[in-house]
């Protein structure tokens, strides 16, 4: 479906807040003023150049391997994260494109959004995510170390208690006391088992 064009169509195209390009067999055949101003170039400098010449080597390879097949297979791509090279630096962008549906035509219409701030935000988020993961790892490790150390410290007095219980049982004691010592021994052994378990889990 084609809508009527607004009267200031040329302004809309040239002053659009995003870069607009049309590629024919990968070569730039139309470009708007916004995109030229980002590149600080004249129209003649980039007409009939390959679009991928504006990308760094990683982007060029990515375009050939992923973007172009996607446009061919499904007619469009959206929000591809690429970096556009200018003469003295580069800027990050989101690249969206639609292929022409007319038979025999190999046109691709592209919109390029400069995303410097968004990219900084993304980088910041990624950095924070990595930092949070790192901190979590450190915390778990610290907790494990404390549990491991404390468990070892607790086992020494326990070993003493178990030894003393064995010793008391060899003495001449009344039946009542003997039953109590048995209970004490069972509880102490249970405690020892629990602490061994902590050592096993944290020492892994």
């Amino acid at each position: 479906m084609t809508h009527a064009l607004p009267p200031n169509y040329s302004d809309l195209y040239n002053l659009s807040p995003c870069g607009l390009l049309t590629l024919e067999q990968g070569k730039i055949v139309h470009v708007n003023s916004t995109f030229l101003s980002w590149l600080q170039k004249e129209e003649n400098d980039i007409l009939s150049k390959e679009f991928t010449d504006l990308l760094n080597k990683g982007g060029k390879l990515y375009y050939q391997l992923f973007v172009q097949p996607l446009i061919k297979m499904h007619g469009s791509v959206k929000e591809i994260d690429l970096s556009i090279e200018t003469d003295d630096s580069s800027f990050p962008c989101f690249f969206s494109a639609k292929g022409s549906k007319k038979p025999g035509e190999d046109l691709v219409h592209c919109a390029i959004f400069k995303v410097g701030d968004r990219k900084k935000y993304e980088t910041e988020l990624l950095r924070k995510k990595e930092k949070a993961e790192e901190e979590k790892k450190d915390k778990v490790q610290a907790l494990n170390e404390i549990a491991f150390d404390q468990a070892h410290l607790a086992r020494a007095p326990l070993a003493n208690m178990l030894a003393i219980i064995s010793l008391v049982k060899t003495m001449d004691i009344s039946e009542d006391v003997d039953r109590l010592i048995d209970l004490l021994q069972t509880s102490t052994e249970q405690l020892d088992t629990q602490i061994k378990e902590i050592v096993r889990k944290t020492g892994a």
Binding site: K57, G58, G59, L61, Y62, D81, S83, E122
Partner: peptide
Amino acid sequence: GMNREDIEALFEVMDANYLG
């Protein structure tokens, strides 16, 4: 056709596009 750095650069672009 490529150097090792080119391939590392490709991996970076791939990673950037796997965010979503």
